[in-house]
């Protein structure tokens, strides 16, 4: 059982608090999306987990031990932090070979991960000739080198083409299915929604949510019904009587906020208003995320960043009183 445990982790750069008393766990066997606006502390947290930066206070462990305590850490934890970090003048293969040798990883793994990342043809090319997408693939290859139980990826789909995005999505889901711990930071909500099972959301260095994707969307979105009718005027009157508002969504479609399809269906049937279409609208992760982070987004100047972030807004306050 190799989980990541972050416990009361705090990191200050001068007076700026990049990570503020953060506590969460990342469990194996699922993909955990690590979300938050720019400057929320995601990358800092990943660096703290890897022992690259020293925490001001608190701890971060992998499998119960600090990262630096592992004799050959690449065999336990694979990480992609910054695809641009690899030295441009080295060939892809030499870059991976130096990493493999330092952790006594068999050199055939180098060729295996190059193959897996689709880089075999450019293995002997210098990294500076690579596109961002190819560098990203190389960074992912490096993360997989030691066949690790824990995989940390910071914005892995950056610069990837559509095929690459499908590849990385399948890869992450596959790693989780094999029982590995997968933590993936991203700022792309629709993208994250396609691969994450669980979410850890940061805002201003603080934990805003640590919950399953399904619960997160349910808790941070309003209900909405989408309808089409041949008689909007009568539907509007009927709804108004029940305290609902019919809003024009354009294109002959109408929406009702804060209602469920069964309520509207029953109401319309009772009033004899013809409905051509009626459905509950699923809120997207993006909408849920924006609702949560609207007030926590970091627009403040450095120095005020240490001010307490808004606590997560309870979902109920989003819903109009029925």
């Amino acid at each position: 059982m190799t989980s990541i445990d972050v416990h009361h982790l705090t990191k200050e750069y001068g007076t700026r608090r990049a990570v503020d008393d953060l506590t969460f766990g990342v469990a194996p066997g699922r993909v955990t999306g690590f979300l938050g606006p720019n400057g929320a502390g995601k990358s800092t947290t990943l660096r703290l987990v890897l022992g690259l930066d020293r925490p001001t206070s608190g701890t971060a462990t992998v499998g119960g031990r600090p990262y630096a305590a592992y004799a050959e850490p690449l065999r336990q934890v694979g990480a992609l932090l910054d695809a641009q970090a690899a030295h441009g003048s080295r060939t892809a293969r030499d870059h991976l070979r130096a990493l493999a040798v330092s952790n006594r990883i068999a050199s055939r793994r180098v060729d295996e991960v190059l193959e897996e990342a689709g880089l075999t043809a450019v293995a002997h090319k210098r990294i500076k000739t690579f596109s961002l997408g190819m560098r990203q693939r190389l960074g992912i290859a490096a993360a997989l080198l030691g066949d690790p139980a824990v995989v940390l990826l910071d914005e892995p789909s950056n610069g990837l083409d559509p095929e690459g995005i499908i590849w990385i999505r399948a890869l992450m889901r596959g790693l989780a299915r094999e029982g590995r711990t997968v933590l993936v930071s991203s700022h792309l909500m629709n993208e994250t929604a396609t691969f994450a099972d669980h979410l850890v959301v940061l805002g201003r260095g603080r934990l805003l949510a640590d919950t399953s994707m399904r619960d997160f969307i349910a808790a941070h979105s309003t209900r909405r019904v989408r309808a089409r009718t041949s008689d909007p005027a009568r539907l509007r009157t009927a709804l108004a009587r029940a305290g609902h508002t019919l809003e024009d969504a354009g294109d002959g479609r109408w929406t009702v906020e804060g209602a469920r399809a069964e309520d509207i269906g029953a109401l319309a049937a009772h009033e004899g208003v013809p409905l051509l279409e009626l459905a509950d609208e699923e809120a997207s992760l993006e909408e849920a995320y924006l609702a949560l982070t609207a007030e926590a987004a970091e627009f403040s100047a450095p120095g005020t960043a240490a001010a307490p972030a808004e606590p997560p807004v309870p979902a109920s306050t989003h819903r109009p009183e029925a």
Partner: peptide, 18 residues
């Protein structure tokens, strides 16, 4: 300096944290 120009040091220290 090859460790510092691009930030490769982080990759190096992730491989050899001691």
């Amino acid at each position: 300096s090859s460790e510092y120009v691009t930030g490769a040091l982080r990759i190096s220290l992730a491989a050899v944290p001691r």
